[in-house]
Write a protein that binds this DNA or RNA. Structure first.
Lengths: 121, 121
DNA sequence: CTAGAACCTGACGTTGACGTCAGGTGCAAA
DNA sequence: TTTGCACCTGACGTCAACGTCAGGTTCTAG
């Protein structure tokens, strides 16, 4: 597959794919003329990269954990990093849940001002 | 309180506080000499701002929702925005849970390679 | 064989949330 | 009163994850 097709199927820009190659996240072979050529698995890999980005992992970390998530197993040396990333993600989930609850309160009260839970002044 | 103390107590930089004022997130009165002076409540507000940032809300949105979260109720006109932000946060939580599960799989397999759940080749 | 779509490599632009530096001022303690 | 730390206002730097533009090449359809 050429780069445009991968971009379409994965729902990202061509520029993004070139960026991923630059960052060693997504290798590509080249045609004799120099055009990038990707295997079919590239689409899934791009989706995975997007998911990791969406989870807030910076590209450096993505680069490190990608091979593990790909293969399903990590070099033991990476275990610490994986666990610290796991912890960071856990913390983010907690934070997000908290913010969501706050927003829910505001939304509920705005919809039905009588059901106010805050202390009356 | 002067800016340095607020920064210390809230665990952010002085620069960040000046930035928040610039963005109309955190007003400050001034001493005759022009130095910023904050009420005690500023520390909590800064923590809230940080929490909203951590949740991925851009400062424009934070500026809009801050008064609501402060007061516990929103101008009805903001309800749509609040709900769309809530949805965005929900999506992020889902993504994070998914990524966390993937990491858990990798970690588990790395720790105990025999307990492999993936299809055997 | 040729038009033109898709691709290529630089390289500069963008946005957000600050960091950092320069050059000057406020203020509390000794 | 003088030291000297905390503070002030610009204003430029940074980093990530691309967007975008310029100027040239490759590939494919007709």
């Amino acid at each position: 597959m050429r780069i445009g097709e991968v971009a379409d199927k994965a729902g990202v820009s061509v520029r993004a794919l070139r960026y991923y190659e630059e960052q060693d996240l997504l290798p590509a072979d080249r045609s004799p003329g120099g055009q990038r050529h990707y295997p079919d698995t590239a689409v899934g890999r791009v989706r995975l990269i997007q998911q990791l980005y969406a989870a807030g992992l910076p590209s450096r970390v993505v680069r490190d954990v990608l091979p593990c998530v790909d293969s399903g197993e990590a070099h033991p040396a990476l275990l610490d990093q994986l666990e610290s990333e796991r912890a960071r993600i856990d913390q983010r989930i907690t934070d997000l849940l908290d913010v969501r609850d706050r927003l829910d309160d505001v939304i509920a009260i705005t919809r039905d001002p009588d059901a106010d839970c805050s202390p009356m002044l």
